[in-house]
Computed example of a mutant assay.
Amino acid sequence: MTDTDLRKRARWAVAFGAMALISPRAKAQHTDPATAQTLFDSAKALMKEERYAEACPLLLNSQRLDPTAGTAINLALCYEKNGQTASAWARYLETVELAARLGQTERERYARERAKALAPTLSYLRIRGADLPAAAIVQRDGVVVDRALLSNDAPVDPGSHAIQVGAEGYKPWSTEVNVPSGPTHLDVDIPRLERNEPPAAGDMAADVSGASHEDVAASRRRHRTWGFVGLGAGAVGVGVGAFFGLRALSQKSDADAKCNGSLCQAGGPELQDDARRSATFSTVGFGVGLVAAGVGTYLLLTAPSAPAAHSNVATRIGFDGRSVLLEGAW
Rank of each mutant, 00 (worst) to 15 (best):
T4V: 06
V14N: 06
V14Q: 13
G17V: 07
A18C: 08
S23P: 10
P24H: 02
A26M: 12
K27L: 06
K27P: 02
D32K: 01
P33Q: 01
A34Y: 14
T35S: 08
S42F: 04
K48W: 05
E50V: 02
R51P: 08
P57N: 09
L58S: 14
R64H: 10
T68A: 00
A69M: 08
T71P: 04
N74I: 04
Q84N: 13
A88L: 05
A90E: 06
A90D: 08
Y92M: 09
T95H: 14
L98G: 05
A100Y: 11
R101D: 07
L102P: 03
E108Y: 01
R109K: 10
Y110W: 11
R112H: 05
A117D: 15
A119R: 14
P120Q: 05
S123P: 04
R126Y: 02
G129N: 00
A130T: 09
A130M: 03
A130V: 10
P133H: 09
A135S: 13
A135Q: 09
A135D: 05
I137K: 15
I137Q: 12
Q139E: 15
R140C: 07
R140W: 01
G142Q: 08
V145F: 07
V145E: 05
R147G: 06
A148W: 05
A148Y: 10
L149N: 15
L150H: 14
L150S: 04
P155Q: 15
V156G: 03
A162E: 14
I163Y: 00
I163R: 07
Q164P: 10
G166E: 04
P172M: 03
W173A: 10
T175C: 00
V177Q: 01
V177L: 00
N178S: 10
N178H: 11
P180N: 01
P180R: 03
L186V: 09
D187Q: 12
V188A: 06
L193V: 11
E197N: 12
P198G: 08
P198Y: 13
A205G: 12
V208L: 11
S212V: 09
S212G: 00
H213I: 09
V216P: 00
V216H: 00
A218M: 08
R224W: 10
W226Q: 06
G227E: 13
A235S: 14
V236D: 14
G245C: 04
S250Y: 13
D254M: 04
A257T: 07
S262C: 04
S262I: 13
L263S: 03
C264V: 00
A266I: 08
G267E: 15
G268E: 01
E270A: 11
L271F: 02
L271Q: 13
Q272H: 04
Q272T: 02
A275E: 01
R276I: 12
F281Q: 10
F281W: 10
F286W: 04
V288N: 12
G289Q: 09
V291S: 12
V291N: 15
V295M: 13
G296W: 07
Y298T: 11
L299E: 06
L301D: 07
L301N: 10
T302W: 01
A303F: 05
N312S: 12
V313I: 14
A314M: 07
S323Y: 08
S323V: 12
S323C: 08
V324K: 10
E327S: 09
